[in-house]
Structures are given as C-alpha cells and as structure tokens.
C-alpha cells in the first residue's frame, strides 16, 4: 500500500487558484438568492403592516377597560370582558374534551392497532383527510348534532367546545402519533425484554417520552381553535353578551366573534376597539406558539 506521502507527491499538480468563475456559475446562485430574499421580504412586510396597522389603530383603546368592561352601545364604555372569559371557557373545555380522546386514539393507532388491517387503514386515511376539512363544516356538524339531541339554545359553551373539538381532534391525533413514532423502538424493546407488558411499556415509557411532542402539538392546535370564528358563528354565537359565562350551558361569545361584531359597527370607536381586541388575540396566539416552541426545545429528547 502506498503511504499518504507518496500519493500527495505523485498527484498531478493542478493550481487551486483558477481565477474568476464562469458567468453562469457566478450569476445563477446570486439571482436565486435574491429571489429567496424577496419572497421572505413579502411575507414579513405583510405581517408587519398588519401588526403596525392594528397597533396604531387600537393602541389607544388597549387598556384596562378592554378587560373589565362589558360591550355597550357607546365605544367609550365598551370592553371585551365577556369575550375574553368566553374564549377561556371554550378553549379550556375544548382542551379537556380533545386532548384525552386525541391522545388515546393516537396511542391505539400507533401502538395497538394492526396497521395492516383494512379497517385501521381507512381510519388512518380519514384522520389525515379530516385535518384538511374547512372549519365551517365542523360547525355544521356540531349544529346538526345539537339539533338532533334537542338542544334549543345552541350558543352554549359546551356546544362551541364541541365544534372546536371536532376541528382540532385530527390535528392532535396526528401530532401525538408523530411524537409516539419518534420514541425509538429500542426503548420499547428494552422495557418488554424486562417482562413489562405492552400496556406498561406504553404507559410508563412511550407516553412520558412523547409528552413534549404531545404538549407542543396540543398547544398549536388549541391556538388554532382560539382564533377560529366560523364554526361558532354557525352556532349563533354572534349575540350581544353582557354577562360572564359561568358554566358549560352558559351563553358565550369569544374574542374573534367580538372583533367581527365590532368591525361591522359604523362608529369609528368600535373599529378601534376591534383593533385593540385583535392586539390581545395576536398576543395570546404568539404566547401560545412561543410556549409550544419553548417546550419543544427545552424537552426535546436526544436519544
């Protein structure tokens, strides 16, 4: 075998300094880079315009009154208190309804179901498709269901939560499945080889290891539900709510609906209020997404 020294000494000596690259090797990459930057710029400029516009318009109304006051006929006395509380109620109930069911469904599909069986393949395909169904369809579904069981006043917390649960259930199932799939099979093997049952292995190893992924997915799904208005509008949530929601059967409105309501009013003051409520909504969404990113980075498992 030749030593490294020999091979270096006998290699043909081509100079490394070849001067300028040919034109197309210089300009092509440059053009592409410029296009990429422009695309990014368009996206960021739109977002910034939106935020700046909202802040300029609603900044003056973004104060304590927004949080403490009820809607009123005069913008100077109106606030979004019932909408804020309504959003909290609806999202809270949605989370309680959806996360256990979604996680359980994902665990079944990932760990227990026979993936080759046609029935499970149909379910799998359906879950993927359901995630892409427009939100208003879920509103219709919830409306039909509530009518079927004879609920007369459908603008209630549990009704809204039902519609939003249907909406984000597929998202949570998919996120949880991803998280479960990311747990290496070596961990399962290690547990089973000790004499643990499948159930113990899932409950004590797989699920704890996928909690960060499940939390991230759930928070992102809930933040989607928080900004959703269409399915709730179908249930008749666009009412003048001047009381605090106080239970599952209580009437309610939410922030996006309150914003929608105020935007449709003629007075300029209400438009400012709508902008102020938008700042709050954007802030909440940013907070939730930030939390999701934090959890993902903080607890990401390195196997």
């Amino acid at each position: 075998m030749r030593s490294l020294k020999d091979s270096v000494a006998t290699a043909p000596t081509l100079p490394l300094s070849t001067g300028e690259r040919p034109r197309e090797r210089r300009l092509g990459p440059m053009m592409f880079l410029i296009v990429l930057w422009l695309s990014l710029l368009v996206a960021v400029v739109f977002l910034l315009t939106l935020i700046v516009n909202i802040v300029l318009e609603g900044g003056s109304r973004f104060g304590l009154q927004l949080f403490t006051e009820y809607p009123a006929s005069s913008p100077d006395r109106a606030g979004a208190r019932p909408a804020i509380l309504g959003s909290i109620w609806v999202i809270g109930v949605t989370a309680v309804l959806t996360i256990p069911i979604g996680v359980a469904a994902a665990v079944h599909l990932e760990e227990f179901a026979d993936k080759k069986h046609w029935f499970n393949r149909v379910i799998e395909l359906n879950v993927q498709n359901l995630a892409a169904v427009p939100s208003i369809v879920y509103g219709l579904l919830a409306l039909a269901f509530l009518t079927l069981i004879g609920v007369r006043d459908k603008n209630i917390v549990i009704g809204g939560a039902l519609a939003l649960s249907l909406l984000i259930l597929p998202v949570i199932i998919i996120a949880t499945r991803e998280a479960i799939r990311a747990v290496p099979s070596e961990i399962r093997d290690g547990s089973l080889a000790l004499g643990a049952t499948k159930w113990q292995t899932t409950w004590r190893q797989v699920l704890p290891a996928s909690v960060p992924g499940i939390a991230t997915g759930s928070i992102l799904a809930l933040s989607r539900a928080l900004g959703e208005a269409a399915p709730l509008l179908l249930l008749g949530a666009l009412v003048f709510v001047s009381f605090d929601p106080n239970g599952l059967l209580s009437g309610f409105t939410t922030l996006p609906i309150q914003i929608f309501n105020w935007t449709g009013r003629p007075q300029e003051g209400f438009h400012e209020l709508a902008a102020a409520a938008s700042i709050l909504l954007l802030g909440l969404l940013l907070l939730m997404n930030g939390l999701a990113i934090f959890i993902r980075n903080r607890y990401q498992k390195r196997w």
Partner: peptide
Amino acid sequence: VFQKPNPFPKSIYDNIAYGPRVT
C-alpha cells in the same frame, strides 16, 4: 441485552428499579 445500549430516559436508579416495579 441489546446491540445498542438502550437506557430509558430516566434516572440511573429508575432504570434499575423499573423492571422489579413493572413485574
């Protein structure tokens, strides 16, 4: 014992105590 070391993402103590507990 497997080809690739596969400790559980738990403490050293819990890695050992896991088997006796689940069985």
